[in-house]
Design a protein around this nucleic acid. Structure first.
Lengths: 126, 126
DNA sequence: CGGGATCCTGCACGATACTG
DNA sequence: CAGTATCGTGCAGGATCCCG
């Protein structure tokens, strides 16, 4: 077994279903929603307030996806008018740990990334 | 300092620049490209072959982004016709470690995710 | 309050053709 | 071979209106 074979064996092609899960759960809005829900449970319009740039449609879609994949729990409180509370699930917390790792990585490597960008922009037609 | 304050303090809002970096480097094609380059250096058309679903335009764009952010190195070999080799950089490897962690997470949690999906689809209009 | 239903637009992406 | 340039379009996502 040579190096290439070993690398390939230790590194099977990305399963489509896994990539799709990450797509559903790691996109722009889901990341932010997850992040806010990690702080504390939130109501729908409360989320709109703490994420001012999200449209209602996108927020709804993100919450539905996260709920369907088991990352957040949707709790209906039968007052009137009805109140709905979103809270991060146990599964969602395991994801958030990884997201934190990603953000930590971004923070640490950002300086080097910026050097790379400057070098690239300088070499090409800025 | 109450619970909410503590949680917020330990969890500052996601910096925009960090999220943008992750967006540039964690998208669909970049993930696959990174994955293949992790196995071994590849030529442009070689990448097209091992990722049959990518268009040349998208591949070019993904490679440029990855290069600009310092995740891959573009090596020009002055033969004729010119050959170009892409290889993952040291920085890119640190990213790939995280991607592997994400894929590992996806693999481990997938069963629970599927249960959540079935429950969701059953409760709503399937 | 917590959304659903529509309409509309940009642009991400694929297809195709051409070049050094 | 390794791209650049151009065109066409699907659909993600914002804006708006409405309802229980």
């Amino acid at each position: 077994m040579n190096e290439t074979t070993a690398a390939q064996a230790g590194h099977p092609p990305i399963a489509r279903e896994h990539r799709e899960l990450l797509d559903q759960v790691l996109d722009k809005w889901s990341l932010l929603v997850l992040d806010r829900l990690c702080e504390s449970p939130r109501r729908f319009n409360e989320l709109r307030r703490v994420i001012p740039t999200v449209s209602q449609k996108s927020l709804t879609a993100a919450l539905r996806r996260l709920e369907r994949n088991g990352m957040v729990d949707r709790v209906v409180i039968a007052t009137r008018p009805v109140a709905v509370e979103y809270r991060i699930s146990a599964l969602g917390k395991t994801l958030q740990d990884l997201v934190d790792a990603l953000l930590g990585w971004a923070t640490v490597t950002m300086p080097e990334v910026e050097r790379a960008r400057e070098a690239f922009d300088a070499e090409h037609g800025e």
